[in-house]
């Protein structure tokens, strides 16, 4: 029986075929979906912020930040027998939900900064991005299918698609 495993905000999970990893309502947050076609192991992180170095002292939630989430997710997948060289990534999210006329402040552009940080991190790990659906001003629910590695994206105003 395939299960749908929910990944919360500032959370990450790993699953194997035939389960699905789902995260609901990504706004400015970014969903990082990692997948290995050989072992059919998938990992999904729902990150909120670009950089753990900006965290206050004692904040230990690695899944909240692009840089730390990525390293934990890769490690978790390795534990399931995945070799790093085989991992590919699909990313989605990083929207700007509210637009202010008087120029966007840093916090408003957090979606863009999240996307940049995720891409930078993936590049450092030499993990190729095979597809992405990022930016815009709308929310996304995403679902990683560990049978195929496809990422299903659902929105309210822009329909559905699979990347």
């Amino acid at each position: 029986m395939e299960k749908k495993i929910k990944v919360g905000m500032a959370d990450l999970k790993v699953a194997t075929e035939p389960d699905k990893l789902v995260t609901l309502g990504l706004g400015s947050c970014v969903g990082i979906a990692l997948y290995d076609f050989k072992t059919k192991v998938g990992g999904l992180a729902h990150i909120m912020l670009p950089d753990s170095k900006q965290a206050r002292k004692g904040d230990v939630n690695a899944a909240k930040y692009a840089d730390t989430a990525l390293s934990v997710l890769v490690d978790e997948m390795k534990k399931k027998g995945v070799s790093k060289q085989r991992i590919v990534a699909k990313i989605a999210g990083g929207a700007q939900m509210f637009k202010f006329n008087n120029g966007a402040s840093d916090i408003m552009r957090v979606g863009t900064r999240n996307i940049e940080a995720v891409k930078k991190g993936l590049a450092e790990y030499r993990i190729p991005i095979t597809a992405e659906d990022t930016g815009g001003n709308f929310g996304r629910t995403i679902e990683l299918d560990t049978k195929t590695g496809s990422l299903f994206i659902k929105t309210i105003s822009k329909g559905e698609k699979t990347i």
């Binding site: 400015s28 709308f138 929310g139 309210i156």
Partner: peptide
């Protein structure tokens, strides 16, 4: 939009 996306 979606509640979670807005609250985020």
């Amino acid at each position: 939009d979606m509640a979670a996306a807005i609250m985020s």
